[in-house]
Write a protein that binds this DNA or RNA. Structure first.
Lengths: 257, 257
DNA sequence: ACATGTTGTTATAATATTATATCTTATCGA
DNA sequence: TCGATAAGATATAATATTATAACAACATGT
């Protein structure tokens, strides 16, 4: 038996017993995918045949085929009748990314090179943590705005949820897409005097994953920005999630000591 | 219609159209769960009844029931015939990240409330990307240090990999654990004049996950810190991964305009 | 006791998923 | 051209999932 097949079989008998519930074809798919993406099987090399895997693992060829088809659908392998399946994925030790860098100083600059799509604007009852900090109008609602920001290539890189203590009239879709929320607040007489920001990280859920075009569970850079007016009252809170492949937060510090 | 139900309905019509494929009962479950865990519905409050949700959302009561049953199975609500379903989950406004650390100014402060464990110190040939930016000594090696930082409760919250252009003699395990790397560099005559930091996010792999005591794939706050001396040469590069549950990066900005 | 409101139980139809077998077609070397 | 290797196509049986309906049982106020 070829060394690769031997190695896979060994992993298979381990993995099958531990992880349960998932269908066979999917467990096999994951196993094979890992062997490709971690470089165990090199670019261009032939995968074990359906028959080989079927025999070695004791499952039907069709089930193996299903897993292989899934790999092909992800463009990890190319399949051909009579020839076999060959790896089309090129293993790169470290895919270096050159993300768009945002600095505090040039938030306006940033918006020049990107566009915003407003998903929704609604007056809703906010979650308790927001409700507590934001002082609310009589009906207990605030303006919830969902937005996605994309770069010049049309790739979405940021997802925002904001809660604003403001009038719905001034915040039409059009206006929000063309101006910053801060500017709109200014119009209605609210001046932002202080901003607190917290940077953290969060996993993408299905919804955000779809909007930012990243797989579920991708690590995203998370920003919470609380804006306060002159009186020290919070008038706006923004939660942002950034695709780290496309956006990173850079700062330069000068030291004296 | 009650405000809460109104609010939920609004979210429902949004979410159902965008997110696809998942079964209705699960989408509803997620929607309701969020409204509970984020505190929109308070502890003890009565949930909308199955009939109400069924009518408002245009799905069968049984499907609603399934979602509610799932909530009950998670002990988020208690259900009772004739009475209704009531929230049993107590919303806690989450004590915002314990070590809230700002910038370089209070790095020393931070180290007072935490401890460092050095995993390894080695002179190695760094990977290509590090090697390029760091100007190296004759033998082409740099000092690679792996560390884990824990808070006062012994919980590990940061994992560091650093590459330093320095003498191994000065960087013994003991010394690294008691002093900052910056201070040690200072001793050897290297003064840090400028620092560039980039914040991003990264998924925990198995190794880091074990060290930080988080599940694989947890989103971690990722920091890259490049330190430059007077001459503008980079003398140190640090890659840090932080558990966002225990550490967040906070900054306060005053606005003039 | 009874009407009303609310969840629990049981049954069921439609569809999707999972794993299999059988037959077909393309590739390539002898 | 033939035989050995591969993957593709079609069919199918057993389950699981999803969404529904109709009826039963409990809680509460009048």
């Amino acid at each position: 038996m070829p060394a690769l097949l031997e190695s896979l079989k060994s992993e298979w008998v381990m993995g099958v017993k531990s992880q349960s519930k998932e269908p066979l074809y999917h467990k096999l798919y994951v196993l094979l995918r890992n062997s490709i993406t971690n470089g165990s099987v090199e670019f261009g090399a032939q995968m074990p045949t359906e028959q080989q895997l079927s025999n070695a693992f004791g499952i039907s060829r069709i089930t193996v085929k299903r897993a292989m088809d899934d790999l092909a659908a992800e463009n990890l392998i190319a399949r051909q009748r009579g020839k076999g399946s060959h790896v089309t994925y090129r293993y790169e030790p470290e895919p270096v990314s050159a993300p768009l860098v945002g600095m505090l100083e040039n938030l306006e600059e940033m918006s020049k090179h990107s566009s915003v799509r407003v998903i929704s604007i609604e007056s809703l009852v906010p979650p308790a943590d927001v409700r507590e900090t934001l002082r609310l109008n009589t009906d207990g609602t605030a303006l919830k705005i969902l937005r996605v920001r994309s770069n010049e290539d049309g790739q979405p890189y940021a997802y925002y949820v904001s809660w604003t203590k403001a009038d719905k009239k001034r915040f039409t879709k059009k206006r929000v897409e063309s101006k910053t929320r801060i500017a709109l607040l200014k119009e209605s007489g609210t001046r932002i005097a202080r901003v607190e920001q917290t940077l953290s990280a969060e996993n993408a859920d299905a919804g955000v994953g779809a909007l930012l075009d990243v797989p579920v569970h991708t690590a995203l850079l998370a920003l919470t920005r609380q804006s306060f007016d002159d009186a020290g009252d919070m008038v706006d809170i923004l939660f942002g999630l950034y695709n780290p492949k496309l956006f990173a937060y850079k700062m330069v510090l000068g030291l004296d000591h």
